[in-house]
Amino acid sequence: MKDTEIAKRGLVLLGCGKMGSAMLEGWLNRGLPPESVTVRDPAPSAWLKGTGVHLNTALPDSPAIVLVAVKPQMMNDALPGLQGMGNGTTLFLSVAAGVPIAKYEALMGEATPVIRAMPNTPAAVGQGITAIIGNAHTTEDHYAQADLLLSAVGEVVTLEDEAQMDAVTGVSGSGPAYVFHMIECLAAAGEAEGLAPDLALALARATVAGAGALAQQTGTDPGTLRENVTSPNGTTQAGLDVLMNDETGLPPLMRATVKAAAARSRELGQ
């Protein structure tokens, strides 16, 4: 990871749970000097203690970035002590779910550069995707720094408007849970057709993982991939006739699922 500004001024990581640890591991693996990182975490893991970062020590006066990875309910306790860094050149990069940019501007000052990000849990294995959006005080350099840090755990996409973040939450933020449940349901359906539980789960898990990898690596439209494995009047078509039903199948169910998650995201952000 080559960013002289971060290496020179330092990076502060507030909170080092699963997401924070995944990102920190990615940065260190990409060559970010551990001495450039200061971590604040009340219950550091054994792994964190062995990374060589500054742990729960004094913060740099004007770090390049403060990455906020604490839980939303801890925000009011974590940020007030950093108000001296607001309204300046320090970028506040937040991965805290449901916390709007206005919240940071209220706590840190209206002129504070803020980028809000929504990663998802596959970041833990470097296969995440993160959507970002900044306020009026973020520059191209700020976006480049955010992209550099967040790309350590997967893809990064930039939104046009913060209002889109609720839909992102419903699709990719909460989406891994939907896929995990699909694996559960596919395995249970296999059991109902006579497969042993372990075998049904192995088949379901590998099928979902392999199909996702095929879609990701080829970049082929998923509709085309679906058609490629569907023979007229064959077994796959018989299953899809159920799954693709516009009234009782997956399309209306998935629309309702994402709508409910996005609505809850809007509620939490108020």
Score class of each variant (00 low, 15 high):
residue 52 G to D: 11
residue 149 L to W: 02
residue 73 Q to F: 09
residue 10 G to Y: 08
residue 9 R to T: 00
residue 24 L to H: 02
residue 102 A to M: 11
residue 127 Q to I: 01
residue 34 P to R: 10
residue 177 A to S: 15
residue 52 G to P: 10
residue 90 T to L: 10
residue 51 T to M: 10
residue 96 A to L: 10
residue 247 E to Q: 15
residue 219 G to K: 14
residue 9 R to M: 04
residue 235 T to Y: 00
residue 67 L to Q: 12
residue 43 A to F: 01
residue 108 M to Q: 08
residue 71 K to E: 10
residue 169 T to E: 03
residue 165 M to A: 05
residue 39 V to M: 09
residue 32 L to V: 14
residue 85 M to D: 03
residue 207 T to V: 12
residue 178 Y to S: 08
residue 72 P to L: 10
residue 227 E to N: 13
residue 159 L to N: 08
residue 224 T to E: 15
residue 66 V to T: 13
residue 130 T to H: 03
residue 224 T to N: 11
residue 239 G to M: 09
residue 111 A to D: 13
residue 252 P to C: 04
residue 239 G to C: 11
residue 260 A to W: 12
residue 260 A to D: 08
residue 41 D to V: 03
residue 260 A to I: 12
residue 245 N to L: 02
residue 72 P to I: 11
residue 113 P to Y: 03
residue 94 S to R: 09
residue 92 F to P: 01
residue 203 L to V: 13
residue 245 N to D: 15
residue 25 E to C: 07
residue 70 V to M: 10
residue 91 L to D: 02
residue 207 T to I: 09
residue 154 G to S: 09
residue 48 L to K: 01
residue 208 V to S: 12
residue 196 A to W: 02
residue 244 M to T: 02
residue 147 D to C: 02
residue 78 A to W: 05
residue 15 G to M: 11
residue 109 G to D: 03
residue 251 P to I: 10
residue 255 R to M: 12
residue 174 S to C: 15
residue 84 G to L: 08
residue 141 D to Q: 15
residue 38 T to I: 02
residue 217 Q to D: 12
residue 265 S to C: 14
residue 230 T to F: 04
residue 109 G to F: 04
residue 197 P to K: 01
residue 260 A to R: 15
residue 243 L to C: 07
residue 20 G to H: 09
residue 62 S to A: 13
residue 226 R to S: 07
